[in-house]
Write a protein that binds this DNA or RNA. Structure first.
Length: 457
DNA sequence: GTTCTTACCTGACAGC
DNA sequence: TGCTGTCAGGTAAGAA
């Protein structure tokens, strides 16, 4: 994903390849890459000799031995590949510049998000594209930036990604900057003071400078050019580290979505001042979750039981009617929902349990989100047996799992005459690597509580 | 003016 | 094995 350091790396490579070369033909395989008329684009470029390649934000600025300028944005997958005489064009060559010395410069872009646009030396700064490019962190005046953004309520991550306000940061580096600044990505922008903004700009400069020296970052499908790999991925602290341990606090990095972007942060180092800390208590069936919940309540903590939340949903006639339609079976008697009818149906039609879960769990998740958003306390616990269903775990900063031996579990289940239809243990076992703390409940209730007390946030 | 949503596009990968 | 759905994310455009 080309952000400022990757674009700078591409610029440096291009300056060793293109200056002095004259374009004798332009082959446009995909017209949608070109801003404006592709025929005019081709005709204008033929006969032009490349000069220096410059950069503004994430735009490459190709100059020529004339007043012509070509603006190139790589977007997601764009790259330039030099092809020597006799070699094949690159796999996703969308626009090919045929040079007078037999080489070909391929603009390669599998996803075709990139753009190429012609302008002139005196006009390109005023094109619509560059009008939307704000100052880079190296040049920005912190007070000006602060004054522009201080009224915004959007998460700071989205503000930092807004190229009009400040250019250069993309999804990878913004996570790094926020982690190093110890600022939660969802912190409302207007909750950060001038000092916070100054910290973010200073860290942006540091991160981008280091990344430029390392030649950018090579992740997933992106590398700056064929055979060229940046090394900054080895220095990444947060990006791509979801559910690994934070080296500073040993809690696990979490992954959430901010403005639709995958976001990794450390919930312990990066606290969100705008909402309560969220802690999930999950575990195998009959493992002792409720014992911990009751202990927390006795200590004055707020603990929400998600099983009860689900039961509340069954009191809403619109919800139960919808469930009735989904299953195609009668669940009401005298306009009143009867849970025993659902239980009886599922006992005989176990394959429909998934249908019920797919309907109920998202509703429970939504209700939980609402509770977190509107909560006035600074810490809120949820007892969540099905934490790993429908990505409910994304709601939590911290997660604790309680486990028991098979024998103890069997004894506990027998004691309470358990008739649960839903088996959560498989999902739990598959996802337990995401948990911050696993408590093995192999002793007395007091011993279980003592083990839980080791968890401190 | 701000905020949110959708579209652009295709390869990689997980899950069934 | 093959199919389907989801995710990756920079930016523009339009709606709210």
């Amino acid at each position: 994903m080309p952000e400022l350091p990757e674009v700078e790396t591409v610029r440096k490579i291009l300056n060793t390849i293109v200056p002095g070369a004259t374009i004798i033909d332009v082959i446009v395989h995909k017209k949608n890459i070109i801003v404006g008329n592709a025929k005019v684009f081709r005709k204008t470029l033929i006969g032009q000799t490349f000069n220096e390649v410059k950069r503004v934000g994430k735009y490459l600025i190709f100059t020529f031995n004339s007043d012509l300028v070509m603006l190139s944005h790589l977007r997601m997958e764009g790259k330039y590949i030099e092809v020597l005489q006799g070699e094949d064009d690159s796999r996703y060559a969308r626009v090919i510049f045929v040079l007078d010395d037999g080489r070909r410069l391929c603009y390669d872009d599998s996803r075709q998000f990139g753009t190429l646009e012609l302008s002139t030396t005196d006009k390109y700064r005023h094109t619509k594209a560059l009008q939307n490019v704000g100052p880079e962190p190296f040049d920005i005046n912190p007070l000006d930036y602060f004054n522009k953004i201080k009224g915004r309520q959007t998460p700071i991550k989205q503000t930092l990604l807004d190229q009009k306000l400040m250019s250069g940061l993309g999804n990878i580096y913004v996570d790094e900057v926020l982690y190093l600044s110890k600022i939660h990505p969802e912190t409302p922008t207007n909750m950060l003071g001038l000092m916070g903004i100054k910290t973010l700009i200073a860290q942006s400069v540091k991160v981008l400078e280091k990344a430029i020296i390392a030649g950018g970052t090579t992740v997933r499908t992106y590398s700056p050019a064929q055979g060229v790999h940046g090394n900054f991925q080895q220095q990444l602290n947060a990006y791509g580290k979801a559910y690994q341990r934070c080296p500073l606090c040993n809690f696990r990095f979490k992954k959430i979505f901010v403005g639709g972007r995958g976001t990794t942060y450390c919930p312990s180092c990066q606290r969100n001042p705008a909402r309560a800390l969220t802690i999930a208590i999950t575990g195998q069936k009959a493992s002792g979750k409720t014992v911990i919940s009751n202990y927390l309540r006795s200590q004055g903590e707020v603990v929400i039981d998600t099983d009860n939340l689900a039961k509340t949903l069954y009191k809403d006639i619109e919800t139960t009617r919808e469930l009735e339609d989904i299953l195609g079976v009668k669940l009401h008697d005298n306009e009143s929902f009867k849970i025993h009818l659902l239980r009886e149906y599922l006992a005989e039609n176990a394959h429909d349990i998934k249908k019920v879960n797919d309907f109920i769990h998202p509703l429970v998740k939504k209700e939980m989100e609402h509770m977190i958003k509107t909560s006035k306390v600074d810490k809120i616990y949820f007892e969540v047996p099905l934490l790993f269903s429908h990505k409910v775990y994304e709601l939590f900063d911290f997660m604790i799992g309680v486990e028991v031996s098979v024998e103890t579990q069997a004894t506990n289940l027998k004691k309470r005459g358990d008739t649960l239809l839903i088996n959560a243990d498989a999902a739990y076992m598959k996802n337990r690597h995401r948990l911050d703390l696993i408590i093995v409940n192999d002793g007395t209730v007091d011993q279980l509580i003592e083990k839980f007390k080791a968890f401190k946030v």
